[in-house]
Every structure is written in C-alpha cells, then in structure tokens.
C-alpha cells in the first residue's frame, strides 16, 4: 500500500510539472499552410531506388534495358515457364489468354484478340512479361529471357522467321500489324449527338415483345448459400480432425490456381493432388515435371512434403512450382491434413 501511495504521489508531481511547463510556454498558433510554397514533405528518391522500380517500357523504346534473345531460346523458356497456361504455341490452356493467331478476325462475329492480331505495340509485350509474368512469379525473368520470350511470341504469330534475334538494338524495327487500327475516343462526336436527344415519353411504340430470354442460356451461378449449407452439414458430420483439415482447406485457396483436388481433379499449371500424401514424387501421368522432380526419387511423405511446402525452391532446386512457401509449421500441417482427405 505504501508503494502504491508513493506511485500516486510521483504521478501527481509529474502532472504538476507538466502544467507548470505549459504555463511557461506560449501555445502553438497553428498558422495556415500555404499550398503554393509546398509542404516540404517526403524525401528525395535515390537513383538506386528509382532504378529498382522504374522498369516501364514505352512504344518509343524508352525504358528498354540492354539485352537480347532469339526465337529458339525463347521457345525453351516459354515451354518451361509459360506453356502450362498459354500452351506450347500460345494457343492457351483452358480460359487463359490466347497469345497467337487470330489474324484477320477482328471484324468477325467472334474475334480472336492476340498479340499478333490485336496488340498495337511490341513494347507492351516486353513491359507486361517483364512486370507481371510468369503468373505467380512476377519479375523473376532476366532481361535476356524477356527478349527471348518476346521473340518467340513474334515467331508463333508469323511475324518473324525462326532465326530471328530480338534486342534493344533492333526492337523498334518490329511493328505489330494492328497498330494503325486504333483511334482516340471519339464518343463526343460519334455518339453524344445521337444520345442527347429528348426521348419519347408517351405512345412511343405500338407494341412490344420479348426477343430473347437469359434463362435460355442458363449460365447464372446457383445460389451460393444453398451450396455452402450442404458443405457445412458434411463437414460437421466428419471426424474431430476436421478442424485442422478445414484450416487447410482455407489455406489451400492460394494453391488452387495451379492445383486441383477432389472429384474430377486433373492437371492444371501443377499436377492434381489427389492422394499426394505418400505418392511417389513426380508420378502423375500426363504432367510435365521438371527434371528435378523426375530424378529425385522417393515419396511425398509428410516430412518431405512439409519441407517442400516451407521452401519449394530450396527443397527441390529446379522445381517449376512458383510459390514462395508457407510461413508456419501450423499452416503446413493444416494443408497436409487437408490433402490427406483426398484419396
């Protein structure tokens, strides 16, 4: 109790000091900020910082780094790092973007918009691959690899021969065929006059009839709530282990873009994972593994799988799995528990 009283006395003394200090000093005047003078906020960006982030490339070639790559090198890199989504020749897998073909289809009923048929500038191809591809492993390619992939994409679009090499030196010599077919927004003259007329309010037509029903196509998603309730009932009926597996299911969302599980699971960007726990490594038919996984041998025991999930490229150098790894052992255990529920 004596200690508590001493503490209170100390606090009171400190408060008194503060009041005395404030009384002795004039208070802030809060002068208005003059916008025109600038605020003096922020600091100078260092050249090394600007260089780290300023990677954008323009149609005039501004921003292109030194480098080069040929069609054949491009094909190798593309098949290894891009073909799982875009197909070996840019024809695309599933609903991933088609990159080649489609020439002379832009005025058709179903136009095919590809790099060769639609994109106006080659610089866009370089810039986009360099900043955002491969999907899930952005900014992991070398400059030469980006030049090589870009050269390969020109080749599969029949725009260069197979002995072509693209570099920062000859980049501007390549023009994409659809460049002239883009024009600036002209709605102000092409549409506004038509769409700013006072509309009819009464007796606007003699009769009206339905010409198309959405229900004929029947592509609207089902009510999600009904489906979710079913899933909850199933989960509730399962074993107590369901908690860890359920956690794993939530975590598995980050794997879903490449790996399928469950009924009808097939190979996507990565192999299907049904029965992966204790499965021989590199053993799913029809999936094109890296040499690392084909050669390493052994099975995906929980330990091996755990080490792989923690650091894919560390555990299996050369793997194509473009995933940074899971942060915690709990997450790894949960995902393995979830995967173990699939035979």
């Amino acid at each position: 109790a004596a200690a508590a009283q001493a503490a209170i006395a100390d606090t009171q003394a400190a408060a008194t000091d503060l009041i005395n200090t404030l009384a002795a000093q004039p208070l802030s005047t809060g002068a208005p900020v003059a916008e025109t003078a600038g605020f003096g906020l922020g600091r100078d960006a260092l050249p090394v910082e600007i260089a780290a982030w300023d990677i954008d490339v323009r149609p005039d070639g501004a921003g292109l780094p030194a480098g080069s790559g040929d069609v054949w090198t491009g094909e190798e890199v593309f098949v290894e790092k891009c073909a799982m989504c875009h197909g070996d020749f840019g024809e695309a897998v599933g609903r991933w973007p088609v990159l080649a073909g489609g020439h002379n289809t832009l005025s058709d009923e179903d136009p095919v918009k590809t790099i060769g048929s639609y994109w106006p500038y080659l610089s866009t191809v370089y810039d986009y691959i360099n900043r955002a591809m491969p999907f899930g492993m952005a900014q992991s390619l070398t400059n030469d690899e980006v030049y090589a992939i870009t050269a390969y994409l020109l080749y599969v679009n029949d725009l260069v021969d197979d002995d072509f090499e693209l570099s920062n030196e000859n980049f501007l010599e390549v023009r994409l065929p659809n460049e002239p077919n883009f024009f600036m927004d002209d709605r102000a003259t092409a549409e506004y006059p038509i769409f700013s007329v006072e509309p009819c309010m009464e007796n606007c037509k003699d009769s009206v009839e339905i010409t198309m029903h959405a229900s004929v196509l029947d592509v609207t998603p089902e009510d999600e709530n009904a489906a979710q309730e079913d899933a909850t009932v199933v989960a509730a009926a399962a074993e107590p282990e369901v908690d860890l597996a359920a956690e794993g299911e939530a975590l598995f969302r980050q794997c879903k873009s490449c790996h399928q599980v469950g009924d009808g699971a097939g190979n996507g960007v990565g192999p299907h994972l049904n029965g992966v726990v204790d499965r021989p490594i590199g053993s799913v038919d029809g999936f094109r593994y890296s040499n690392t996984l084909l050669d390493v041998g052994g099975e995906w025991s929980a330990d091996v799988l755990g080490a792989f999930l923690a650091d894919p490229r560390g555990a299996m150098p050369g793997t194509k799995m473009a995933f940074r790894g899971l942060r915690s052992q709990e997450e790894i255990d949960a995902i393995i528990a979830y995967l173990a529920t699939f035979e």
């Binding site: 832009l106 005025s107 077919n181 883009f182 600036m184 927004d185 002209d186 709605r187």
Partner: peptide, 13 residues
C-alpha cells in the same frame, strides 16, 4: 473493338 475491326482507345469517361 468496333464492328469494322477498328478499336477505340482511351475511352476513360
């Protein structure tokens, strides 16, 4: 992409 195969760009508003 318009019906004639030409395309408007910068249709921001």
């Amino acid at each position: 992409l318009l019906a004639d195969g030409q395309a408007r760009r910068f249709t921001w508003e």
